[in-house]
Simulated assay, not measured.
Amino acid sequence: MKKWIPCNVIKSFEIKALYTAFEITFDNRFSTAGEIHNFFEVICVLDGKIGIASDMNVYSVPGNRLVIHKPMEFHRIWSEEETTPSIIIISFDADTIIDISGTVFELSDDEVKAFCGIYRTISGSCKINMRRVTSILPGGLPRLQTAVNSLENLLLGVIGSWNRPSAESSSSGCAVKYREIMKFLSDNVNARLCIEDVARACGMSASGAKQIFHRYTGQGIMRYFRDLKVKKAITLLNSGCSVKETALQLGFSDQNYFSTYFKRMTGKSPRAYIAGN
């Protein structure tokens, strides 16, 4: 008997679960609270213009654009230029071996229509409560699988197009100072810092640093810095560090405080996180 050797096909981007799916129109003064979560979020801007802070970068995003937020990436959005933006948001867990280096991508009219169709199929196939996808409706699985496959293909087309226009981060004075603050915090995530340390390093007053940071993130510098430490803690725990080693390396003098804050952000204690991974 002839021996057949299979050629294994590995999906480079595979959606495993859905979290949210909703369409919304903002008023011209709308802004969200900054957030970090451990799943992907894609935003399709249909109309108007939104501002986005995404980790260190700030973008002004008009219609026919797709925004991709990667897991554990800080992000916040707001209305810009007195417009009333309309957007669709779909968030999901996914396995990927692709390096997603961009954040904001231009879409063709056909791609926007396709994204809207994917959203309509998802919302018609699932029970959605308070914007969250909670279950699949009876008979909805085949349509949902088709929509998920279409979303995977659309995103692969966006991510994989080397010549597709991608937005550049804002170069305004405030945005530049914001990036300086974010970079300093990221570079010194293991240190014990206060607001005065951050302001001094960035050549600003403490009040000026607070004002600029809050403008783009909607939160305080030290709260974000603690969240950044938790992101780094996840990396350290995944690499085999103990809870005690992780807390000390990140400048937490009190292991119990570290564990409490870690659980507040992730929903699990550090020990439970290690056990589950």
Rank of each mutant, 00 (worst) to 15 (best):
F213W: 03
S86W: 00
D187Y: 03
K263E: 15
K210G: 03
W78H: 06
R200G: 04
E111D: 09
E111I: 08
W162A: 05
L18H: 03
D227G: 07
F40L: 08
K263T: 09
R65N: 14
Y178E: 04
I5T: 13
S108Q: 04
A247T: 11
R226I: 11
H37L: 04
Y19I: 15
F30I: 04
Q255K: 13
D227P: 01
T134E: 14
I90F: 00
I43S: 15
S239F: 05
G48C: 06
G124F: 02
A94P: 06
D227M: 14
E152S: 09
I136A: 12
T20S: 08
S170C: 13
L107Q: 08
F262K: 06
I90V: 06
V9M: 11
I68Y: 11
L18V: 12
I89Y: 02
G48V: 06
L46Q: 15
G117S: 13
L236C: 12
G160T: 10
N256K: 15
N188Y: 09
S170V: 04
F40T: 03
Y257K: 14
N64T: 05
F74P: 10
D254Y: 12
S108G: 10
R223Q: 11
I274T: 12
M204S: 06
S259K: 08
C194H: 08
S135N: 15
L193V: 11
E152F: 11
W162N: 00
F225T: 03
C241G: 06
L66R: 08
T121V: 08
L236E: 11
N57P: 00
I234K: 13
E14V: 00
D95T: 09
I68R: 09
A33S: 14
V243W: 01
E111G: 08
I97L: 04
Q249Y: 12
T96C: 05
G276M: 12
K2A: 13
G124L: 02
T32C: 03
A233M: 02
I36A: 06
S31Q: 14
S123P: 02
I77S: 13
G63C: 01
V67I: 15
G102V: 12
A147I: 05
V133D: 05
S123K: 09
C202M: 01
R132D: 10
Y119W: 13
V158R: 08
S172P: 02
V230K: 09
T20R: 07
E81C: 04
D187F: 03
S161T: 10
W162Q: 00
S86T: 14
S91H: 02
F258E: 07
V112W: 05
D187H: 01
A17F: 07
S171E: 14
F115A: 07
K183R: 15
L156E: 11
G208W: 08
M1Q: 07
D99Y: 14
L250N: 09
I98L: 15
S269G: 10
D110V: 01
R132K: 11
V61S: 13
S86L: 00
Y257M: 13
